[in-house]
Design a protein around this nucleic acid. Structure first.
Lengths: 201, 201
DNA sequence: CTTGCCTATGCAACGAGTTGCATAGAAAGC
DNA sequence: GCTTTCTATGCAACTCGTTGCATAGGCAAG
């Protein structure tokens, strides 16, 4: 139930409405934990009924009223307890990796475009992360001695940057491998190379 | 619904029972897609009823009978179609990252042990991956010209290795950051965190 | 000979997450 | 005037994933 804790962290960093949280989950905290607005509204409601969040109805002009949530005292306790509990190291779920293994039973070359799309998407993400880092942590407009929260946000962002760089390098490796297989399949077209899949169909 | 496709890939690589699949999902394909035996049995049943899998009851001695599943012709079509559909680039879900940001509202030093545990877990995983690579792909006992399936399995494994190495390096960074914060908190114990005048970078 | 582990399959209940849809006022473009 | 976009919240239905439990024979250790 880590969504609950991600919401607590985000609201401690800054109180806000469900809508605002949903937007934060599209950037910032959302780089490491995703959630749709549906999930967020549902969990916010539950957390409020449990007393871990306080809610304040804020009338607005020119736009719908909003419910601003903030962390109540029991919420801090919930977060603190979670922080002291051990969690399991993540197991990644990488759909593209499954596809790549699956390509052995189909045409590997057909994956090239897909891999390139992912390469582009990760390059874009990296660019966004780097821009954010410059803006908030390492650029001339950044606060100069970072406080604890900023230091921790920065190290998490550095993790995201490292992840994207690693992924991009790996996708290059994947593309090179696919190209190598295509060349091999081309030059030895008649031979029974590769495709542990089926001897003959 | 990538579990379905992960199962297709795994059964194409080698037919097997639900139990055997569950074990494969603890290693090999499970490095990139996790599933419990419950999920697997349920999905196998559904896939069989849809005709994408064929099942063969295999009596065994000294142990319970098993149902050996293999991919039927429609299953190959299902996989092939999926391979040609684009998928969204993964969004990671990193609980530890949420914890690290949350630590700003608690004692960051209390996270050190947790981070070290994760460091250890990822080091162990890396060691397993590297052992697997040596055994199956780069060692003296490995098949010398790898076939297509093996090349693709290898590039996926290289991705896992890169991921673990990146993660370990990042966890070192996290530990250094936590230590830095602890030192700062120690040396300026009385002062208010970020507003402090003591720069110790 | 009892306790615990391994193979092997499965049900039931629950919680997490996704998708589609609905509402509703204000602003902005055509 | 019409459509689209943005803010803002929410229901309903569904699928995906987890946890706990149950069964059942064989094997090994104490």
């Amino acid at each position: 139930m880590a969504l609950e804790h991600a919401i607590l962290v985000s609201l401690l960093e800054k109180p806000g409405s469900g809508y605002e949280l949903a937007r934060r989950f599209e950037r910032s905290i959302g780089y490491f934990w995703t959630a749709t607005h549906q999930q967020i509204y549902r969990v916010l409601k539950r957390m409020e009924s449990e007393g871990v969040l306080a809610v304040l109805e804020v009338p607005q002009q020119g736009r719908p009223d909003k419910k601003e949530y903030s962390v109540a005292a029991p919420g801090r306790a919930v977060l603190s307890q979670w922080l002291h509990e051990p969690i399991e190291p993540e197991s990644i779920r990488h759909e593209l990796a499954v596809k790549i293994r699956g390509a052995a039973f189909d045409d590997p070359a057909a994956l090239v475009d897909e891999v390139r799309r992912h390469h582009q998407a990760h390059s874009d993400r990296l660019a966004r992360y780097l821009a954010g880092e410059l803006r908030d942590f390492t650029g001339p407009d950044a606060p100069s001695p970072l406080d604890t929260g900023q230091e921790l946000q920065h190290v998490v962002l550095r993790g995201g940057i490292a992840y994207e760089r690693m992924t991009i390098a790996w996708l290059d490796d994947v593309l090179a491998t696919l190209r190598g297989l295509a060349a091999r399949a081309g030059s030895t077209a008649a031979s029974r190379d590769g495709a542990s899949s089926e001897p003959s169909a």
